[in-house]
Amino acid sequence: MAKEFSQTNLMKTPDKTTAQRYWKENLTYLAILLVIWFLVSYGAGILFADALNNFRLGGFKLGFWFAQQGSIYVFVLLIFVYIFLMNRLDRKYGYDE
């Protein structure tokens, strides 16, 4: 027995300009999040480590903490931020399920 699909169940195919706007906004999110990740991992862990080592977090120098753990925490946080942003973007352009 074949299932019948109603018109509301079929997702409309977006036009080319909508897909381009979606992709451009997606790349903007990616660029911003990657810059944040770079600044935290490379900047705070290596470039600015000496300046950050004047402060302490949990008994460790802040530059050392960013190099060892902080950049990992920020990376995981950025994953969740990206998920949130992409879900919102999908709803905005009609790609959500």
Rank of each mutant, 00 (worst) to 15 (best):
N87Y: 08
G59V: 03
T18N: 11
Y95K: 12
E97S: 09
Y73T: 00
T8I: 12
D50W: 14
Q20A: 12
V74Q: 01
W37T: 04
T17L: 15
I72R: 09
D50G: 06
Q20Y: 14
M11R: 08
F80E: 12
M86R: 07
S41G: 08
V40R: 00
R56G: 01
D50C: 05
F48E: 06
Y22E: 02
F55R: 02
Q7S: 13
N54G: 13
L62I: 03
L62T: 05
F60S: 04
F48C: 03
F55E: 03
N26F: 15
R91C: 02
I79M: 02
L39C: 12
V35F: 09
A19R: 15
T8C: 06
K16T: 10
D96N: 12
F60K: 09
Q20I: 13
K16W: 10
L47T: 15
L47Q: 12
N53C: 06
K61V: 01
L34F: 04
L57C: 03
D90C: 09
Q69S: 09
F64K: 00
I72K: 13
F64N: 00
F38W: 10
G58F: 01
L57A: 00
I32W: 07
Y95A: 08
K24I: 11
F64A: 00
T13P: 04
N26R: 12
L57T: 01
N87S: 08
L30K: 04
E97P: 15
K92N: 07
L77C: 14
Y82G: 10
I46G: 01
D90H: 14
P14A: 12
V76I: 15
A19V: 15
K24E: 14
M86C: 04
A31R: 03
N9M: 11
L39S: 10
G94W: 07
L47N: 11
V35C: 06
F55W: 14
N53Y: 03
R21D: 15
L34C: 07
L57K: 01
L78H: 02
G70D: 04
F66H: 02
I32F: 04
A67Y: 03
P14R: 11
L62Q: 06
Q20M: 14
I46F: 10
Y29F: 14
F48L: 14
Y82D: 08
P14Q: 11
V40H: 02
A19G: 11
E97D: 10
L85Y: 07
L34A: 09
G63P: 03
G43R: 01
F60N: 08
G43H: 05
F60G: 00
Y73W: 10
I83S: 04
Y42M: 05
L47P: 04
V81R: 00
F84A: 12
I46L: 09
Y95C: 06
V40N: 00
W37H: 06
R21G: 08
G43F: 02
Q7M: 13
D50T: 13
L78V: 02
L33P: 00
W23L: 13
M86A: 05
Y73P: 00
L77F: 05
M86G: 02
F48Q: 11
V40F: 06
F66D: 00
N26L: 14
L52N: 03
I36P: 10
D15P: 12
R91T: 05
S41C: 04
K61Q: 12
L27G: 02
I32D: 06
I36H: 05
Q68P: 03
I32Y: 07
E97L: 08
V76M: 14
L85H: 05
T18S: 14
